[in-house]
Design a binder for these strands. Structure first.
Length: 440
RNA sequence: GGGGGAAUACCAAAGCGGCCAACUGGGACGGACUGUAAAUCCGUUGACUUAUGUCUUCACAGGUUCGAAUCCUGUUUCCCCCA
């Protein structure tokens, strides 16, 4: 009875990915293999920055589903491969990072990963973190060339799409990047040999590298291993997923505030929402399908977006951060008043307006302000408006608010009070915010 | 090398010597509407303490004229045709 249940559960991994639209490709006998019992799989993360961004979340979710199906996930952070640079679908040779930066990045990323998977010591399928620098750094070049390089032909390596493309474009490819697939392939072999890791998961751009790994395992160890890839995330309008005007959406709250993170998901388009809720949340199929039906009935409520934003923000940050972000969003975008704005504490206020342009003025200047327009003269040095005329026009057009209060008369008396005793929130149009900080 | 044409605001593109800070379209920004969306409608788009006012602008430098984006001369750049 127990065995039967286990079996159904194991198999569910592929089924799970399939209905979530997270299955791009897999090697033939993988489902039989997973049905036999607990298997181990790994998925690699490139330490190109000191934080993961939401693109990496797809890999994280893949590992998470794998673990939930009763298997053992390894999250590999590429301390060694990061030194080489993966040429897959990159148009140009990459810059190399120095060792110190890489070390820093590796530890930051490991730290982030530890949040998502179950690393507790009592379960047999607990997640583990590995770093390929641990085994690659001791490998001498001669040994590597003899023991690994001998098993794979250059013809085979050049046939890979990722390499072929670079050769055809004529942009060239250094030997360093060319050898990347061998290193990654060897990682797979190493984990297979020492950790009984038989599956490698990855984005569809990793297919070539993963297959080099299964090939190495076959030739060097006479064993079999499997590959499974997930599709690259796309957006309905064709633009790149995971980018905003201000750059990548990071998981590190220092780089992308929880509020901005929450906003990113809230602003997902209707076309993408169904896809993303399957990929980025662990909600079950029934719940998602019900939400979709409700969404179709009342699209303006954007239930899907709200749910994605809630789930993902809570998972990546915390419930408290989610609640703050939600409250801040209501204040900023709902019908709110100066009083609502004043209820935000300073920390939240600064978090919400993280990255918003700021101008400092001193107390004397502040006291000299008589009309609304005075604030936008030399005092704020063209940060908010390039000229007073521009400010005047916008005010007359009804597009300026201070502390959420619409200003309609440029020459009217300036009556706004400071928030937290030192801030003024200037809103130019709907989404352009500026903070004026009054210093002592 | 010879001949012809063009240079106007973010882009495109109008512009009888006075009524030109310069038609119009796009873009951008703002407002209304809305779902922090799309579509639509409206407004702004040289600067100035908003004034039916002043100043600086139509490749650059000069000139004609009471008055020049508009006419003349030179310079630069671009396009086309002939070699």
């Amino acid at each position: 009875m127990q065995a039967k249940y286990q079996k159904a559960k194991m198999n569910s991994f592929i089924e799970e990915l399939r209905w979530r639209g997270m299955l791009q490709d897999m090697t033939p006998e993988i489902d039989d293999h997973l049905n036999k019992g607990m298997a181990a799989a790994y998925l690699g993360f490139d330490p190109t920055a000191d934080s993961l961004h939401i693109g990496h979340l797809v890999g994280v979710m893949t590992l998470l589903h794998f673990q939930r199906a009763g298997h053992k996930p390894y999250a590999l952070v590429g301390g060694a491969t990061g030194m080489i640079g993966d040429p897959s679908f990159k148009s140009a040779e990459r810059n190399l990072l120095d060792k110190a930066t890489l070390d820093h990045n590796v530890s930051c990323i490991q730290n982030q990963l530890s949040k998502f998977l179950d690393f507790s010591t009592d379960s047999s399928n607990k997640a583990e973190l590995v770093n390929n620098y641990d085994w690659m750094s001791q490998f001498s070049f001669l040994d590597f060339i003899r023991d690994v390089g001998k098993h794979i032909t250059v013809n085979y390596m050049m046939a890979k799409d990722s390499v072929k493309r670079r050769l055809e474009e004529g942009s060239g490819l250094s030997f360093t990047e060319f050898s990347y697939q061998l290193i990654q392939g060897y990682d797979f072999y190493h984990l297979w040999k020492n950790k009984n890791c038989t599956v490698q998961l990855g984005g569809s751009d990793q297919w070539g590298n993963i297959v080099t790994g299964t090939e190495l395992i076959r030739r060097m160890g006479g064993g079999s291993a499997y590959a499974l890839t997930v599709p690259l995330i796309t957006k309905a309008d064709g633009s790149k997923f995971g980018k905003t005007e201000s750059g990548s959406v990071w998981l590190d709250p220092e780089k992308t505030s929880p509020y901005a993170f929450y906003q990113f998901w809230l602003n997902v388009s209707d076309e993408d929402a169904s896809k993303y809720i399957r990929i980025f949340t662990t909600l079950d199929r029934e719940t998602i399908e019900n939400l979709e039906m409700s969404h179709q009935e009342a699209p303006h409520l954007r239930l899907l977006q709200h749910e994605i934003a809630k789930q993902v923000t809570t998972m990546v940050h915390s419930e408290a951060d989610y609640l703050i972000a939600q409250k801040a969003s209501q204040i900023l975008f709902g019908k709110s008043s100066t009083e609502d704005l004043a209820t935000l504490d300073e920390r939240t206020f600064l978090q919400v307006f993280d990255g918003v342009p700021q101008v400092k003025i001193n107390k004397t200047q502040f006291e000299e302000i008589e009309t609304v327009l005075d604030l936008f003269g030399e005092m704020t040095q063209g940060v908010i408006f390039s000229s007073k005329g521009e400010a005047r026009k916008l005010i007359q057009g009804g597009g300026l608010s201070i502390n959420k209060e619409k200003q309609t008369d440029p020459n009217g008396a300036f009556t706004s009070q400071l928030l937290q005793g030192k801030y003024l929130l200037v809103q130019k149009g709907k989404k352009n915010y500026f903070i004026v900080e009054v210093t002592a």
